[in-house]
Structure formats: structure tokens, C-alpha cells
């Protein structure tokens, strides 16, 4: 199941808002640095990875998780899309 990057980003943003209690007064998180902005901490990354792997049926390795791309929702969505395409 590979959906568009926009849809993936939307799913990730919904998860992050709910899981890390970010209310709707905070504008779109798409390009925000999730860690420097304090939205997600180290334990949160682990939860996020588990969510991505379960939801999109992918396996993320260290290269993905420790990349600069894996710091924003748009970047993560791009990784998920690429990884899911390869897996199919």
C-alpha cells in the first residue's frame, strides 16, 4: 500500500499531534524540525518508528533514522514513500 507523499505526511502529522499532544493552535508541522522544536524526544522517536513500520509495512534501518531527512514530517514521508516503493 503506497500512497502519495502528501497522504503519508498527513498520516504522520496526525499521529504526532495525537501521540505527543500537540494541539491545533500549532500550525502545520510539515517542515518543522521535530526534535529541535521539542515535539519529539528520544523515546518518542522509537514510538514514531514503530508506528511507521506498522502502518506502512516497512523496515527502517539506521541510515534512515539517523539521516537529516528524518527530522521533519515531509522528510520522513519521503523516506517512507521510497522505502515502501522498494519493498513492493
Amino acid at each position: 500500500m503506497v500512497t502519495s507523499q502528501v497522504e503519508i505526511a498527513s498520516v504522520i502529522e496526525r499521529f504526532i499531534r495525537k501521540q505527543f499532544r500537540i494541539d491545533d493552535t500549532v500550525p502545520s508541522l510539515g517542515d518543522a524540525h521535530l526534535f529541535e522544536s521539542g515535539f519529539v524526544d528520544s523515546a518518542g522517536v522509537v514510538e514514531l518508528i514503530a508506528f511507521l513500520e506498522a502502518t506502512f509495512k516497512i523496515r527502517l534501518d539506521d541510515d534512515h533514522v539517523f539521516s537529516d531527512e528524518f527530522t521533519t514530517i515531509h522528510g520522513i514521508a519521503a523516506i517512507v514513500e521510497k522505502t515502501a516503493s522498494v519493498a513492493q
Partner: peptide
């Protein structure tokens, strides 16, 4: 310990 401003990947990287 990780500085709150750096939390996220840094802690995982250090442990790995």
C-alpha cells in the same frame, strides 16, 4: 543525558 534541544536522534545514536 541529552540536551532537550537535541533530543530525538542523538540519544539513539549515542546508545548504538
Amino acid at each position: 543525558v541529552v540536551d532537550p534541544a537535541e533530543r530525538g536522534q542523538a540519544g539513539l545514536q549515542m546508545l548504538k
